[in-house]
Design a protein around this nucleic acid. Structure first.
Lengths: 353, 353
DNA sequence: TTGTATGCGTTATCAT
DNA sequence: ATGATAACGCATACAA
């Protein structure tokens, strides 16, 4: 491939002049500019990114460190990141599947000299250890960090508030026996949503019983498993709060396969409002989190920090959430008396309880 | 941050020696190696990626160019790409939302000198123009390209075969009036699936009527719109093939909201087998595409090409697909005589015809 | 307005 | 076994 020297030679000018033309410097004669541009086009010259960043110390790239989670929520965040970046002429360098501190640091290490800043998604308890060290090296934005870190920008979803809201909604709808499907251990979103659930119960004089706190890991399959468990319970809760929509999807599926009607038999609520939530049947009551905005906002914060140094000292923003009411929580509790719902079976009863 | 020179100075050796230690050269005394390693650790020295790639001409990074589409399928492909890459010590540089040739080329241009190769996802008719030019500059892998390009590696999903398969299944189930929800224009997957649909009909002596070919763009919302249209039809097809699962999700939702039972009233089939497909109710009959494997395979092909030059000349692999039968297509056509299904209503009939 | 020369942080070649 | 030094491709301070 042609280098800047090839262009200079063929245009009969110095490399400095070519560089000026390329970078839009005004101090160059129109005539020579035209000549250089012609050669650039003919040679199909593209500047070498690594060489550029080597002496400008700017890469126009943002590093993104992801945990192993997948699903629609994360993919929306990444879309937001990418779009926010491209709007400002940046690209994103991704490294994912980070379980422990070591893999995170290895990923970050490979980004040294290749990124202008770092966005770390959902570092859990285990991976938080490295964040402080990273912050010495790059400007760092933490998304939903397990706890605050000095020197890092942070954006958190209003998990606690959202959980309080949605559980409050279930309580106001008349439910007194409300279960929860928890998320992965050590995960901040999971912990905060659980805390909000317990808080809302306590606030209303209800007790949170361990028997109705079901294990989950944010995957559809884990929601399905919890759903099976619930369907076969002798005494079921009248409502279940799945701490993310993926698990709510699995939960709905398990309940319906076992002849438990939603919302008549059990009300179901989720969290995240992923795109398909409104297309489930029944439509899923959930807490809307604008994942796309979360990504975009993170990029903006990071890019802001790149312009004016030292603006990043432990800045912490909260992304608000919003309750979305759909059919899955519209239970008419008064008309349901027995432990099981009325006898009309679900469309595909494949088992019972 | 510390550079290799700082390390060399503090360790009392030359930069060459430090470089040897870092790159595991054997020609260095144990004693000096230990000394250098100690200094590296103390200074927290991390090599500068851009500088390394400047003279090795290796970046250990793969560029990924994405179209504007999103959804679970794409996010799975990206997971596959990322995991395939990280297993071989590579990272991926992402640039998405490419509508036309110009934005694609701009994205690619920003990757010059920063990547060892390129993976371009689903270039449609409009963006195909630039591929040949890209291939002169990087090793390029095309995923589901609109048409073959000389000099590019290619991996395509067996779209045509899958569509023939699934429509054949509907026909074998007794359906003679089968509709389709089409994908975006110019998109290869969409075109091939449509072609397969028509082929399967023709093969069985059925006619494809324009009236039963509904517009769509692979989004849930477009599937929902098509579903509304179908629900309100005077004469409905007895089965509908949505050309991806996202649209099938929207379709199911619209049908159920309008009191059309699936599969009793209408059988539904999708394409892709995204993770939630099995958790929809009814479970979605679809064509399984291993999106994760697609991504991983693309990386393998690209890395293979990086090792042995010239192995990439128009190599074309096909990713096989597999029919997945679930409840959404289990119609008992014989027992259904009228234009509407039997009287037992859907769980939430909010409208109907 | 243009050219020369230096340096960005590495790796690799060639001496020693 | 180790060190000096020339690239890698570009931007820029300084000279002209």
């Amino acid at each position: 491939m042609a280098t800047i020297r090839d262009v200079a030679q063929k245009a009969g000018v110095s490399v400095a002049t070519v560089s000026r033309v390329l970078n839009g410097s005004d101090a160059v004669a129109d005539q020579t500019r035209a000549r250089v541009e012609r050669v650039v086009a003919k040679l199909e010259y593209w500047p070498h990114g690594a060489a550029q960043s080597l002496n400008t110390s700017r890469t126009h790239t943002l590093g993104v460190l992801l945990p192993d989670l997948h699903g629609q929520f994360f993919s929306e965040v990444i879309r937001g990141l990418d779009q926010g970046a491209r709007e400002r002429g940046f690209q994103i360098l991704v490294s994912s599947a980070h379980a422990d501190v070591d893999t995170v640091m290895t990923g970050a290490r490979a980004m040294a000299g290749r990124v202008d800043g770092l966005i770390v998604m959902a570092p859990d308890q285990a991976t938080m250890a490295g964040m402080k060290q990273l912050a010495k090296r790059f400007p760092v934005i933490l998304l939903n960090p397990h706890h605050p870190v000095e020197g890092c920008g942070m954006i958190s979803v209003a998990n606690f508030e959202g959980a309080v809201d949605i559980v409050g909604h279930l309580i106001r709808s008349g439910h007194r026996s409300i279960g929860i499907i928890k998320g992965p251990k050590g995960n901040m979103d999971a912990e905060e949503r659980l805390r909000g659930y317990r808080h809302a119960l306590r606030k209303s004089g209800l007790e949170s019983t361990p028997a109705f706190e079901f294990a989950g890991d944010f995957s559809e399959a884990s929601g399905f498993r919890a759903g099976l468990e619930i369907a076969h319970l002798r005494v079921r809760p009248t409502a279940v709060f799945a701490t993310n929509d993926g698990m709510a999807t699995g939960l709905l599926s398990a309940l319906q396969q076992n002849g438990v009607l939603v919302p008549q038999g059990i009300a179901v609520a989720g969290f995240d409002d992923i795109p398909i939530a409104q297309f489930l049947s029944p439509g899923l009551t959930t807490v809307h989190v604008d994942a796309f905005a979360l990504g975009k906002q993170a990029v903006q914060m990071l890019l802001g920090a790149l312009q004016e140094e030292n603006t990043l000292v432990s800045r912490h923003e909260i992304l608000p959430v919003k309750l979305i009411l759909r059919q899955s929580s519209q239970s008419q509790l008064k008309t349901v008396s027995g432990p099981t719902s009325r006898s009309r079976a679900a469309s595909r009863p494949t088992g019972g309880n």
